[in-house]
Design a protein around this nucleic acid. Structure first.
Lengths: 300, 300
DNA sequence: ATATTGTCTTTTATCGTGAAAAAACAGTTT
DNA sequence: AAACTGTTTTTTCACGATAAAAGACAATAT
């Protein structure tokens, strides 16, 4: 079992949805770009669709024979990349508690527990190390630094520095820049979400990420843009884990975002700065309160 | 050939130097901490030293029989880690030119060229990606972003942001903090180097790194501290590569450092800010002028 | 009692291997 | 001739295996 075919399975599922919508399929290369995979994978997908009687396929003639049924889809869990599987397992252990700062991380044990090879775990840990939660001892094991209060403070310090600068850069962007239409669209989505907050409050985290990424991109600095990956990762797990008053928190955040958006549109640097600070301060507060005392007392 | 024994060879060489200085050897565990290796490696070292007639070894009795000769040492190139070897090869290719932005990086080709396995190259690329010079396309190859003017500007922008903040934090440190003695020692080393600049100007780069790392550490923020790795890496290769007016540049930098150190010691935030800005501005200038026009015109 | 050595076990680092996926090339169709 | 399909080659991804190095444990010496 050297490599799972999750790329194919995921693309297959997405292709089924496409089929359901458009009731027809374009050429192989076009389908490739549409699904973000190579033509090799596209052909594997088409071959299977022919086999299961979804389509008739003869060279460029692709006829849809029936609509896709739930059974045609591959199970969701088979479409995840190994990296995602490892990350989830790792974060679950980390947040489930019992993961004290200073504890050492064993590659072999992790690999066995998750049921993957050591190479994948090693590569994951190397990639993960940039989040600042683990650290490698030279020719030795990894050490867990812990999801502590100190970590949250260091993270938010950088976030605030970067976002204030990005927001200022954003406000200074010329009128004809495409970001202003992006911002209008986001504003709209915020208003719609606010109007139906009771039912849709869980959708906020995704919107939040898109909004902040748009702002960070205005910095035109790869280090700032890339740093948002760290923030996004932390907030992603934080949202999953801390459900207390989620609705209220999100409602407040939407309000702050709208003020922030107005400030950006006014291009008044003073207003932008104030709105940005206010929002980041409450975001930090939310993150901090979600760290249990036992955790925050750990040494770093 | 699954794993080279460079850890042993490097520790062996360092142990020879120790032997030469102290003419005696401590216990195995102590030697282990001294050399930064496990006792297993220490015992391998001792076994070889006995074999080559350097020492007599019987349990805790270790008698030095003769002094180490140049021939006793392992060749320097056998003491490098694989990661170092790969990094050097990679950077040589990158700086040797012909490495245009947008060019794709081939793991297999790199591995074959350097004569190592693909796994090591992959791990290197993942680690290296945090420097912002390469980027991975999802389920596909790596892309070189190029050592461009844009890169240098983005790097220095963050550097300046971080160092100004760290310097301010440094100046605010209490009188009894250990950093002040570290700073005094560094000041001294700067003065000594300045006095013998003609002969020792190449030693500056190492001193420069220690000085800036001391300042960054005052931020007490892991992201700021870690970011210095990016700067250090770039400057390390930059120093090797751009030898134009090295002596003059270093002399100027030493002068700026001394003013900077005085400012820190005065604890006057205005002075600190000014000295820091001045030095970082000239550091940026040095880096920028070392990027040839052809490079700076590359798309990013 | 504590530190040190001898021995054994576990973990890390690296490679070669093979399947999945991408990419290149050549031949067809419109 | 431009875009598409069929076929072949190359590259990436992930694994198990193995030597180097670390670490654990028991026996021994101060």
């Amino acid at each position: 079992m050297s490599k799972s075919n999750n790329v194919y399975k995921d693309a297959y599922n997405r292709c089924l949805r496409l089929l359901d919508e458009t009731r027809s399929l374009p050429s192989e290369p076009e389908l490739g770009t549409l699904l973000g995979v190579s033509r090799t994978t596209v052909r594997t997908i088409l071959a299977r669709m022919e086999e299961t009687g979804l389509i008739a396929w003869n060279k460029r003639a692709k006829t849809v024979l029936r609509e896709p049924l739930p059974d045609d889809f591959f199970p969701e869990e088979e479409t995840d990349t190994l990296a995602e599987i490892i990350e989830r397992s790792f974060m679950r252990r980390l947040l489930a508690g019992g993961a004290e700062a200073g504890m050492q991380i064993n590659e072999l044990e992790l690999a066995r527990e998750i049921g993957v090879g050591t190479t994948s775990v090693r590569e994951f840990l190397i990639r993960f190390s940039r989040f600042g939660l683990i650290e490698k001892r030279r020719n030795s094991h990894w050490v867990l630094k812990g999801f502590t209060r100190a970590f949250a403070l260091e993270l938010t310090e950088i976030r605030e520095m970067f976002e204030l600068r990005s927001a200022a850069a954003f406000a200074a962007l010329p009128q004809d820049s495409a970001v202003w239409t992006d911002l209008d669209r986001l504003e709209d989505e915020h208003r719609q979400l606010a109007n139906d907050i009771a039912a849709r409050f869980t959708e906020f985290s995704e919107l939040d990420e898109r909004f902040h990424r748009l702002i960070h991109r205005a910095s035109r600095n790869r280090f700032i843009v890339d740093f948002y990956d760290v923030i996004a990762m932390i907030f992603h797990y934080h949202y999953q884990w801390n459900k207390a008053q989620e609705r209220e928190r999100n409602e407040v955040a939407i309000g702050e975002h709208l003020v922030y958006i107005e400030a950006l549109k006014s291009r008044d640097l003073g207003k932008v700065d104030a709105a940005c600070r206010k929002h980041l301060k409450s975001a930090r507060q939310t993150l901090l309160t979600s760290i249990p005392e036992s955790r925050s007392l750990q040494k770093h």
